[in-house]
């Protein structure tokens, strides 16, 4: 998109004046800016406005309730439960994905043959939709019936079938975590591979001359030099965990609605604002703003934590 401009500008005047540069700046930036304002900033601002009203089935509410919606949510044990659900999910999925994708990246770097094949094989699930994967996990692998894939295997070794998603045990975490792990590990593996490739081989040569081997190399060279990638991956993983919706909703939702357990914040807000065809935009807006603040706080805290001891 910018290429013709450069050509044009170059042809026009050897000494581009500031005025012309500014004009072209606005010509190209205005559409972007307009889109950003109309589709990002206005909705955010409007949400903040709606969150102060009792806004049911309307986007132009008149019933001002101040911080009532915030108070309602923060005193609602289901909302607080949903935050706890998120914390459990994040505590499992963030370190697990981090470790698995880093492990895969390290293994694949060492492998001599079929490297491209294995990279692709691990990356392909990233292209799969969360909805489709959720349906496969739910209906085929972890079907609660005795003839579901996992239950068939359990029965073949003489164990009782498990009601994976029924909520009377905590096995639904296993289903949800394996699902997300399968879908996202390849993507973060690629990020780590890129990070690993950016490390100067001479550093390894120097280390090996100094007698460093095996885990020592990883601990003292690879991991510290990988820090920028690690920070980015951890932050992305956390934000993604916070935004979890698709796999929860499609794995657990039934004809009669979503069960009361394993409800992350977005699912909870969706149910309470839009459940059964209702439209409680005030509560929904207040909830999303609370979530935004929490995500921001978590991300900042995590960045601070991960940057401790980083090279200045």
């Amino acid at each position: 998109m910018t290429a013709p401009v450069e050509v044009h500008a170059r042809r026009r005047a050897p000494a581009t004046n500031a005025h012309s540069r500014r004009r072209w700046f606005w010509v190209f930036v205005t559409p972007f800016l307009a889109g950003l304002v109309v589709f990002v900033y206005v909705p955010i601002g409007w949400s903040a406005y709606l969150s102060l009203f009792n806004a049911r089935n309307t986007v132009t509410p008149t019933d001002f309730v101040g911080l009532g919606n915030y108070a309602y949510l923060l005193s609602d044990r289901l909302f607080l439960d949903s935050m706890a659900t998120f914390v459990v999910f994040a505590l499992i999925i963030v370190p697990l994905t981090f470790a698995c994708s880093l492990g895969l990246a390290l293994l694949l770097r060492r492998i001599g043959v079929l490297q491209a094949f294995f990279r692709s094989a691990f990356f392909i699930p990233t292209a799969c939709s969360y909805v489709i994967a959720a349906l496969v996990w739910r209906m085929s692998f972890f079907n609660g019936a005795r003839f579901g894939l996992a239950n068939t295997m359990l029965r073949s070794v003489g164990l009782d079938p498990v009601n994976w998603l029924g909520g009377e045990n905590h096995w639904y975490w296993f289903v949800l975590v394996t699902l997300r792990l399968w879908l996202q590990v390849g993507f973060y593996m690629i990020l780590f591979i890129a990070g690993l490739n950016a490390i100067d081989p001479q550093v390894y040569e120097a280390a090996s001359l100094d007698g460093a081997t095996g885990f020592g190399v990883f601990r003292h060279i690879t991991f510290p030099l990988l820090r920028p990638t690690s920070v980015a991956v951890a932050t992305l993983l956390l934000i993604n965990a916070f935004q979890a919706f698709d796999e929860f909703y499609n794995t657990l939702n039934t004809v009669r609605g979503y069960p009361p357990y394993a409800r992350p914040p977005l699912v909870y807000l969706y149910l309470i604002s839009f459940g059964d065809g209702s439209q409680d935009l005030g509560i929904g807006s207040a909830g999303t703003l609370i979530l935004t603040v929490v995500i921001l706080a978590f991300s900042l805290a995590q960045n601070r934590l991960l940057s401790i001891g980083a090279d200045r």
Partner: peptide
């Protein structure tokens, strides 16, 4: 019986039946 009411009831029911919590406490909440 709004979504919020229905969610509150179904959570209490699930807590009593699946987690064995006290019915009076849960349904009162």
């Amino acid at each position: 019986w709004t979504p919020a009411a229905s969610q509150a009831y179904s959570t209490a029911l699930s807590n009593v039946v699946k987690s064995g919590r006290d019915a009076r406490t849960e349904f009162t909440a």
